[in-house]
Design a protein around this nucleic acid. Structure first.
Lengths: 117, 117
DNA sequence: CTTTCATATGAATAAGTGTTCATATGTTTA
DNA sequence: TAAACATATGAACACTTATTCATATGAAAG
């Protein structure tokens, strides 16, 4: 019942191979998924998201809070915005950023749960 | 009621600053969290995890399935194992890898949901 | 014990990324 | 209009990372 797809020994069933090939999302989706997680994969960006959990904030507030330059925060907010994790609202000279949706919180909480195991 | 922590204008309330500072996990946790998401932030690793959704697999099966070299897969499995996302089981010459727990599936599914919005 | 096979690993390279600095854009106020 | 301020952006740099190639390790079979 087993097939040999690579090694001498019979490793996994042919129907599993077909099932995986069928269920595997297309390359574009997988690429986008990795790109999304890449955005979460930087502690500065994670800190920014955590800060926005409480309230919307302007760029300089975040910079002050995290002890980083305004430029660094602005660059990272751009990345977060491109990934649709945060959204921006202009009020005069000031730009307020906030979480784009609740997925952000869910994903981060899942991550936290995994770490704390 | 507002304080000025950076700009001319009064941006956010002082109690929010205190709340954020209180709720923000410590630097080590935030670093670990970012490191975890970094692991998900590579399409090869995401593909490997997807394959393991169906069934445990040996290294050469995964390599064949994803059209990548055995070495590349082995290096990436090492990363996944360090992050405790997969576990290994030896059977003779063959090493079978499988998902370490269900968090993996949950995190990836949350990511997919965000993308498909 | 030697060969064979599956996997792991180290070094090298090419590509990607986060921060800083300098500066530009855009908005408000004098 | 000019000055002041918040934010955005481009270039440069140091640092990280994914893959490949060559080779080592570990296990089974002859």
């Amino acid at each position: 019942m087993c097939i040999d797809i690579c090694c001498d020994e019979k490793c996994i069933h042919e129907d599993i191979i077909h099932k995986v090939e069928h269920d595997l999302p297309n390359d574009e989706t997988l690429y986008d998924l990795a790109e999304l997680f890449k955005v979460f994969g930087d502690s500065t960006r994670v800190k920014i998201l955590y800060a926005l959990f409480e309230s919307e904030m302007c760029v300089c507030d975040i910079a002050e809070l995290l002890n980083l330059t305004q430029s660094a925060i602005s660059h990272q907010l751009r990345v977060l915005k491109s990934a649709k994790l945060v959204k921006a609202r202009r009020a005069g000279k000031t730009v307020f950023y906030s979480l784009a949706d609740e997925h952000v919180r869910l994903i981060i909480n899942q991550g936290i749960e995994h770490i704390l195991e």
